[in-house]
Each structure stands twice: as C-alpha cells, then as structure tokens.
Design a protein around this nucleic acid. Sequence first.
DNA 1: AGGAAACAGGATAAAATTTGTCCGATATGA
DNA 2: TCATATCGGACAAATTTTATCCTGTTTCCT
Lengths: 138, 138
Amino acid sequence: MKVTRETDYAIRAVLLLSEDRGKTLPVSALSEKMDLPRSFLAKILQKLSRAGIVESIRGASGGYRLKRNPSRISLYDLYKAVQGEFVVNECAVEGRVCSRKERCAVHPVWKKIEREAVREMKKHSIASLSGEKSSQRS
Amino acid sequence: MKVTRETDYAIRAVLLLSEDRGKTLPVSALSEKMDLPRSFLAKILQKLSRAGIVESIRGASGGYRLKRNPSRISLYDLYKAVQGEFVVNECAVEGRVCSRKERCAVHPVWKKIEREAVREMKKHSIASLSGEKSSQRS
DNA sequence: AGGAAACAGGATAAAATTTGTCCGATATGA
DNA sequence: TCATATCGGACAAATTTTATCCTGTTTCCT
Ligand code: FES
Ligand code: FES
C-alpha cells in the first residue's frame, strides 16, 4: 500500500513526459532532469510500457513518450502499473485465506480505507497535476 | 503505511482482551486463542504496554490486561503504538528533504489520503469492533 | 525458602521487499 | 557500419518484516 520510490519516480517521469507533450525523451534525459537513478528508472519505464501508459521507441534517437493523453492517466494507473493492486492489509485481500474473515469486524474498515484511497488517486490525472502552479483544490 | 502482521496481531490480541474486560491473560493464552506466534506476540504486547494501551502484570498468574476502556482505544492508537506514524509516501513526510516539495502538486494528494485514512482509523474503537456482531455500546 | 509461572529487554536471524546495478541482445537512425 | 537506445534477465545491497531465543527479574503458591 505504501507508495514506494518506484511509484514516486514513475510519477515524476510521467509528469516530465507530459510537459513536452508527445515528445520522446531517452531515459538519460528523464533521469538527469528529475535526478533519478538511471538504470532503476529504466526498469520502471519498462513497467509503464507494458501497462500501456508510455511507449518505447528503440534505436538511436529513441526513448519514451506518453501513449495516452495525460488527462487519462491517473495516479492510480501509475500506482497499479508499478506496485500492483492497492492493499491496506494482506489479511483483508479478496481470496486470501483467513479463518476469521467471516466474523471479522475490522476487515470492512481496511476495505473502506482502500476504496477511499483508490478513489482519491483516480481523481487526479497527470494533466491536472502537471504545470507546477496548477491550484487543484480537493 | 501498510498494515503489517504486527499491527494486525495487536488488534486481535486487544480485541480478545476486551472480551473478558478487565481480565488478565498471559501471552500463552492470547497466542493460543488467536493462533498467533507466541514470542512475536510477546514483543508486540511490550510495545502496547509502553504506549499505555495494555498493562503488564509480572510474576506467576500474571499477564496482560487493558489499561484503558475499549471505547477509548482506536485502530489508530494501535497502529501508531506498533508501526509509528502513518505515512503514505516518504517523500511527503513533514521535515523530510525533498528539493521539489515546494512546487510538487502530488504532495497534497498523499497528504489528503493520509488524513482520510487516519480519520477512518480513529473512528473505530475496539469497543465498537468487538463482539462479532458489532453492537455499538460504550 | 524454593520452585514455577510470567513478563522485560536485548541479541540474533531468516525471509521478503525495496532499491538499485550490470550486461548481452536487439533495434534503428544517420 | 557505428553510435544510440531500449529489452529482459541476472545479480546484489540495504532495509523491513517476521519472527525466535536467552538471561534476568518479578511474583504467586506451597
Ligand atoms: S480479515 Fe483476517 S482477521 Fe480480519
Ligand atoms: S513531495 Fe517530493 S517530489 Fe513530491
């Protein structure tokens, strides 16, 4: 559930890609401009690529560019592409074995926190977050 | 931010302690009844003890008992006693070094998720969660 | 007094996760 | 062909999670 460096880096990279919209940037440029470890970022971009969020262009003058409109990329999309399903408590995951699940009164609380957090992350698109000065109220 | 086994176990133990209210139970009993690893649970109870949530009675026929009324013990109290401050993204922690903090539009989103989750956890007391059928009373 | 039951606190450690690096293979533009 | 890139897999350090064990101390009971 916690947002790791991986996801944080993914967000920063995608934010940068959304600035020069449609532009293709190599990992080196993204890494330098956002001060992120290069080879780690490379791995992260592969995940985003597989998730259909960015697109890779191989070969000389290649790099990465957004595949979707920034307004259609939410924080949740990035979280999920990088970290997978958002889970508050392993015990409350659907399909997990937990002998107490039926009578557990705490379970629903974790589920609610989960839903609220996901909802909040879905609310914010890269488009609404980019541009430094965007006074997004929520 | 994720709820670890430690916190999950703490909640189960405190729930059991709240059933026999005021009763003192040794770690062995708590461990057996809730099927939790004994020595691990012992460590967790020490944390709860230091946080003033439970009280330890040493010596033969000793054990642990609640120090506060179950209606005054929230999930958040337990989370904090065991895992410390609730944090969604390390980058967004107060007082942390992050060069981009000032102009970062994502920061407020993590903070909001944090506030909402903490609020939700504070809303539920052990009293309101115990008794399987969630009959509210205090 | 002595023994058994129980917690306190520190040391230790296995397993899992996070946070990366590196390299050989492949693709592509000039 | 050569320089520039990504791809995918292997590897690895650091940290966190999930425990266990041991020695010491307290307290009840006989
Ligand atoms: S869901 Fe497993 S104990 Fe609550
Ligand atoms: S708070 Fe550090 S980059 Fe957003």
